[in-house]
């Protein structure tokens, strides 16, 4: 249905290897897998840290409460293995929505420590900077501004990139070691996507963002 542009052609995908999607019992991993498969990428949901070794690209999805997310990662024995593949083995890892926030040092949601893979914190939307008619959570499609040059943000769509968001908190960078990839505006500008080397995060849901998401996940599969 969304077989799209020439850049998502199969030869590239086949050489890109296999993507492991971490299933730590907190959310739907099926839709991420389905969109990757529709884009022609090989993708498998993994429910044990031992399986991380089989993949050269990892996606950490997630919805819900930060503390519940960290608790599930801890209970499944994921925390050290994820840190190891990201920091030592330098495998490409993409956090989506709560998965992006979990890459941070700390979140205000539950006053909880994160994986500490990206030098940033997670903060509630600042209600005082939002006009009264803007509800929290920020839920819905929003356009984003891609900044800098990064393979993940590359788009060949005629329309401006837009993605589906559902969140009450957003990341705030601690240092300029982390590169913003997408800015979004909800009352004020916040970082919708960022990266440092092999570690990347997206606040929105590419798997629920039609062709814009297909394109982004295809970029991840190819980079």
């Amino acid at each position: 249905m969304h077989e799209s542009s020439e850049k998502s052609g199969r030869p590239d995908i086949d050489s890109a290897g296999h993507i492991g999607i971490i299933d730590y019992g907190i959310c739907n991993v099926g839709s991420v897998r389905n969109m990757l498969r529709r884009s022609g990428a090989l993708a498998t949901c993994i429910s044990s840290p031992d399986e991380l070794a089989d993949f050269d690209r990892i996606i950490l999805p997630g919805v819900g409460h930060f503390q519940a997310g960290m608790a599930n990662l801890a209970n499944g024995g994921w925390i050290e293995p994820i840190r190891h593949i990201a920091l030592v083995e330098k495998k490409r890892i993409l956090g989506i929505c709560l998965g992006m926030q979990l890459l941070a040092h700390h979140s205000e949601e539950g006053d909880c420590e994160g994986l500490g893979l990206l030098d940033m914190d997670v903060k509630h939307f600042d209600r005082s900077r939002l006009s009264a008619e803007l509800p929290i959570p920020h839920m819905g499609w929003s356009e984003v501004d891609a900044v800098g040059a990064h393979p993940l943000t590359h788009s060949e769509q005629a329309e401006k990139q837009r993605f589906y968001f559902v969140h009450s908190l957003h990341v705030s960078l601690r240092s300029d070691g982390v590169q913003p990839l997408f800015w979004c505006n909800y009352g004020y500008p916040f970082i919708a996507g960022c990266a440092r080397d092999n570690i990347m995060g997206m606040q929105f849901h590419p798997e629920k963002s039609h062709m814009f998401g297909v394109e982004l996940l295809t970029n991840f599969a190819r980079m």
Partner: peptide, 8 residues
Amino acid sequence: AEECFMPL
């Protein structure tokens, strides 16, 4: 859910 690349 598999068919929906949009929020459901």
